Amino acid sequence: MTTWETTIAPLWPYLVLILVGFLPSEIWRALGVVVSRGLDERSEIIVWVRAVATTLLAAVVMKLLLTPSGALAAAPLLARLGAVLVGIGVYFLARRSVIAGVIAGELILISVTYFAFA
């Protein structure tokens, strides 16, 4: 076997992921940072962009919640709804800590789904 077959060939999916998935997104993020550098945080355009981003995120969460695919589809609807509600509650109780809300929601979803099928 050549060096290519043993070391580099198994890594080609990761290279494709970086080239097609990460780099195009990262270029736009960097450009956004450069362009928004002098903008006021309370300007109308920034408030609008933040509102659109929040709306898109909420839509993705609702799509995953109501029409899941893959392993998430095995979780009962009430488990998914409960996990979201617990995550939101912990987010506010932990002084708007996103990581605390996400971890709490995931723990609830995993626990309820595990016990539903155990």
Rank of each mutant, 00 (worst) to 15 (best):
I108F: 13
R95K: 12
A104R: 03
E44P: 09
F117L: 12
G38R: 14
I27L: 14
L66W: 07
A100I: 11
L93H: 02
L15N: 04
V60T: 12
A59E: 00
V98W: 01
S97H: 05
L17F: 14
L11E: 01
D40F: 03
K63R: 10
A104T: 09
S111E: 06
L72N: 06
L11Y: 05
A83V: 03
E44W: 09
M1V: 14
L72Q: 04
R80M: 02
L39F: 06
G87S: 08
R96Y: 03
W4H: 09
A30D: 00
L56Y: 02
L107P: 04
T2S: 15
R29F: 14
I46C: 05
A58C: 08
L109G: 02
L93T: 03
L107T: 10
I99R: 10
R37I: 08
L56R: 04
A83C: 02
V33L: 12
R96V: 05
I103V: 15
I18T: 15
A51N: 06
S25V: 15
T113S: 15
A104C: 10
T7H: 07
R37F: 13
F22Y: 15
L93R: 11
A100V: 11
V49W: 02
A116G: 11
W12Q: 10
S111V: 13
R29G: 14
P13K: 08
I108C: 13
A75L: 07
A75G: 08
G38W: 00
I45F: 06
V98S: 01
G89R: 05
F117P: 00
E26K: 11
V86P: 09
T55F: 04
A118L: 14
I18W: 06
L15K: 07
V16F: 03
V60H: 01
F115L: 14
V52Y: 02
V16H: 03
A9K: 15
M62C: 05
G101F: 02
A30S: 11
R29I: 15
T113V: 09
S111I: 11
G70I: 12
W48G: 11
R95N: 10
I99W: 11
I46R: 09
A51I: 01
S36H: 10
E5K: 15
I88F: 09
V34G: 03
V60F: 02
S97G: 13
M1S: 11
L31K: 14
A79G: 08
P68F: 04
L31E: 08
A30T: 13
Y91N: 06
I18P: 02
W48D: 12
L11W: 04
T2F: 02
I8S: 01
R42P: 02
P13I: 13
E44N: 08
W4V: 09
A74V: 12
V52N: 02
L78K: 05
R96N: 11
A58G: 05
T55P: 00
I46Y: 01
G101E: 01
I8M: 07
L107Q: 04
G70C: 06
G105Y: 01
P68I: 06
V90E: 03
V35F: 07
E5A: 12
I110V: 15
